[in-house]
Design a protein around this nucleic acid. Structure first.
Lengths: 233, 233
DNA sequence: GTGCATCTTTGCACTGTGAGCAAGTTTCTG
DNA sequence: CAGAAACTTGCTCACAGTGCAAAGATGCAC
């Protein structure tokens, strides 16, 4: 195998083909998002996207299986960023702490903006929501993998890794982390409606931290003991 | 409101029309599941289902929007059972305890069998998985509602209920509960492959309990401190 | 039971999706 | 430059999903 690549090589030799593909891919998602903005969800076809992106309908399907898949790529990007952050954390750190740190990193405008837009636009469209769910689920699986690697670091055989550490622990924890992250986003959207001002993002960050704290405390103390939610400003 | 009914009245006067509709609906899901068994996922069309159910293609779409939706009805039924159990729990009880109790109730053959079958058959098919995800998400929303009612019991205005108790707490908790339940199911399938024997179901019950315990403890103590998973002799 | 209102099924037509295939075009490699 | 490999595109086809209007079933009142 080529030395520098893990699964694709955008680093060392961004060959022409790869650049073209990346550009096309980008053009597609951009066009899709643009149409979503202008026409609203469900009011445009694959052909419209293809035209806007300057490619044929058939080529669109070489990249994505559906309009929703094209749009979900945005969410995937968002969650991949989160995962990258997570994997960067020191291995000794408690998982919840790593998750907290990774999530907080996300609350910056560049990362959150496309996600936020898609989220609010997709609120009304069931097709879109389904793709979003899929993206989150995919992310959960990857967190499970990442967490599993922490506990079974250098297992060459891989046999032990399959059910080595308590699989229930891994899956339950990873799922809960994602759920709490999603909960924080939901509440944020409900309160701030995708506003990207610094104060709003600070609120998001706080919500993410709070949700991880709740998880870490086992949801002790019933809801809203005294502070319904922290007063910001 | 009528005394015996919650949202539709199948109890008191099961009129002919309702019976017919219910029968048709059942025939559709049965046929769909049958075809899924025989032909495998993705290898049959809506027309096939309609033929098997003795109705027209058009009528199928009067009941379900897609093959997946018809199959997801099974999962919906499963999760509705869970929700019903949850709502039956005393209001004073801690939510996690209610969830644990409700989930354990599910681990009986009649309830779990169709779900288990669909789960294993759907493992390979992305379309199906998406519908399943949707069903779980729907269930999460309903748990949130149910939990919210507990904390804001007799609010006539309903205004406070919208963001009354800490919405983050509710959503994070409900999402985590569902995630943990799903994790338990995942592990169970991985270990027992949908086996419905009493021992297997006992294992499922234990996994559900364990996952709720993990959640309640805030996932304290890293994975598999000494007991990878409790030995059930 | 007759008649009427209402709900349900069905056939038909039409747009859009998604994939296979084979011929073109671009990029890579020696 | 020549051949291989990858990518694009147009064509075609089966199938999904929906609107519409006619036909059938059911419920209700008289």
């Amino acid at each position: 195998m080529p030395p520098t690549t893990s699964h694709n090589a955008p680093d060392s030799v961004p060959t022409r083909r790869e650049l073209n593909k990346a550009a096309t891919r980008q053009a597609i998602t951009d066009s899709a998002l643009g149409l979503l903005r202008i026409q609203g969800p469900g009011n445009f076809t694959v052909e419209d996207i293809a035209d806007a992106a300057g490619i044929s309908r058939r080529t669109f399907f070489n990249y994505f299986a559906s309009t929703e898949a094209a749009l979900a790529a945005v969410t995937f990007g968002f969650l991949d960023t989160a995962l990258r952050q997570f994997r960067l954390r020191p291995a000794g750190e408690p998982i919840l702490e790593s998750a907290r740190a990774a999530l907080v990193e996300l609350a910056d405008p560049m990362t959150v903006a496309p996600m936020a837009e898609l989220y609010s636009l997709g609120k009304t469209n069931p097709q879109l929501s389904r793709s979003e769910l899929e993206a989150w689920d995919h992310c959960t699986e990857q967190i499970i993998d990442a967490a599993r690697e922490r506990f079974a670091p250098a297992t060459d055989t891989g046999a032990a890794a399959v059910v080595g550490v308590d699989e229930l622990y891994l899956r339950a924890l990873a799922g809960s982390i994602i759920s709490c992250g999603k909960a924080a986003l939901d509440v944020w959207f409900a309160r701030c409606g995708g506003d990207l001002s610094p104060e709003s993002l600070a609120a998001l960050r706080q919500l993410l931290i709070d949700s991880m704290t709740l998880l870490g405390s086992g949801f002790a103390g019933t809801a809203s003991p005294s502070t319904p939610f922290p007063d910001r400003h």
